[in-house]
């Protein structure tokens, strides 16, 4: 007789970020980002994490996917998209407090201790702050093994096998559950969700709750400015001219 496999729970944290394809500028007074007229999206790496969770669920329908976001009421929009992609339910930890990666990791650790997921799948970095910290900090807090920059995730018996990108190529790790995996761009291509799908997902449960910890940020952005612009160069008319110009500059 085959034992029924235990239900697996995957937690997928989602961050709302400014449109990753938009040209973003700092405000003239340096106090922040000028987001006037810009759209907001799920952080692309988090979208990949949702997609991967949904693909695992398609192979094993007993999996439950919980999407979570920390932030203002507006983050509901991104959670709804996650639900439309196939997450079963969503949690919005509603707060307008300043957050850095350490606060996010503390909140997610508290949530994980309550929900007891078998795996946390999340983006390797957010395309707004480009920090690449929260996943690793969270894994440390939970004392779980981690596989960052995942390019392939396979589920085995009580383990996952992750092929991850490295500075020199890739490597394959085997992690016992529970574990934390952060996604890289090549893990999958998220499915396209049309508006009707998002509307249909409105019937899925979305719970709003307050923060669970009083963790205070350990860093603060005090100024945002435009980076030094590169000097505009010039066009050259031929390979000959290019070659001579590079020779003159001592570049060849």
């Amino acid at each position: 007789m085959r034992l029924r496999r235990a239900l697996m729970k995957i937690l997928v944290p989602i961050k709302r970020v400014v449109d990753p394809y938009a040209k973003v500028r700092s405000l003239p007074d340096g106090s922040g980002m000028d987001t006037t007229g810009l759209k907001f999206e799920i952080n692309p790496f988090d979208e990949i994490a949702v997609e991967e969770a949904v693909r695992l669920k398609e192979k094993d329908p007993s999996i439950e996917i919980v999407a979570v976001s920390i932030g203002g009421a507006e983050c509901e929009e991104q959670l709804r998209k996650g639900l439309a992609m196939g997450a079963d339910r969503a949690i919005l930890v509603e707060t307008n407090d300043p957050l850095d990666s350490t606060v996010v990791a503390a909140e997610l650790a508290a949530l994980a201790n309550e929900l007891k997921p078998d795996m946390i799948l999340m983006g390797k970095q957010a395309t707004d702050d480009d920090n690449n910290q929260a996943g690793q900090m969270l894994a440390a807090k939970l004392n779980w093994p981690q596989a960052t920059f995942a390019a392939k995730v396979e589920r085995g018996d009580g383990i996952v096998r992750v092929t991850r990108e490295t500075d020199t190529g890739d490597e394959t790790l085997e992690l016992p559950l529970p574990c934390l995996v952060t996604t890289d761009l090549r893990l999958n291509e998220p499915r396209y969700i049309a508006l009707p799908g998002i509307i249909k997902a409105r019937s899925k449960p979305l719970e709003k709750r307050p923060r669970m910890t009083s963790a205070a940020p350990k860093t603060r952005i005090v100024r945002m400015e435009a980076p030094a612009a590169r000097q505009a160069g010039r066009k050259v008319g031929s390979v000959d001219e290019l070659y001579v110009a590079l020779k003159d500059r001592g570049a060849l």
Binding site: T102, N131, G135, M137, L138, A139, D167, K218
Partner: peptide, 23 residues
């Protein structure tokens, strides 16, 4: 800064309850 240092040092920051600045 490298993929390896981000992988490992962000975890170190988590273990030490430290602040972190990347790049």
């Amino acid at each position: 800064s490298s993929m390896r240092s981000k992988d490992v040092l962000a975890r170190v920051a988590g273990l030490m309850d430290a602040a972190m600045v990347t790049d």
